[in-house]
Amino acid sequence: MSVDSRRNGRAALAFHTLFMIFLLAPLVVVILVAFTPEGYLSYPTHGFSLRWFREILARPDFIKAFYQSLNLGLVSATLATVLSIPAALALARFRFTGREFLNGLFLSPLMIPHIVLGVAFLRFFSQIGIGGTFASLVFAHVVIIMPYTLRLVLAAVMGLDRETERAAISLGASPWTGFRRITLPQILPGVAGGWMLAFITSFDELTMTVFVASPGNTTLPVKMYNYIEQTIDPLLASVSTVIIVLTVAFMLVLDRFYGLDRVLSGKG
């Protein structure tokens, strides 16, 4: 039942409108600029043009960086999820020596500034001789995204009625079958939500990756950052527009699937 005393007043709605404008303005501006027919940064006051989107196709380095980011996101999110599931099960269901320590260890990348992780990885990977390789990017990304997958999987396992697995075992299932047929399907939304949050975090990561990437193995955010350092032209806007459109599509899927507020409360 709706209660009238809990409705927003006029001032609140005005505040809300300004807030929404503040949030959306930079994104709208980027999209507008991407359609400019001019050769420099400007708003498309004299008609829209797709020239800067065609320009992307003429830049194999951007396309390559995009695929790198995609691959990196897929591989590292999957690896992080695979490591998280057993770890989450252990942390949620067993009391063992070192449990608190491990929990802290797995979540610690949330507390360590990415810039610090970046320089630490730079030193480490160059010392062991894998600096600038795709593998080193995967390793580094798994470290920073695993807290997200772990949190969401952990939340799913904790919210699970353990009796269901016990019921399966009482009906004659082996522990492995119990896990595969009963537990896994129930924690799947959490696992998928964690994977998606990890993927997008990896896909967007800049601060740490700037240090770990090499000209041969670079990601889209790093590519764009380095480009901004040189010059800002409408190409950046058109690339950004593509990213915005893809992210919004991804976000809608994520929201349908798992609920955006639930996923993102794992991000804080």
């Binding site: 501006v29 901004i228 800002i232 950004s240 990213i243 929201d255």
Partner: peptide
Amino acid sequence: CLLITLGPLLISVVVRTLGWVLL
């Protein structure tokens, strides 16, 4: 509104910052 508010978190920081440069 929640989607509009939280959505930008998923959009690359470089893109969002670029928007402010343009603004």
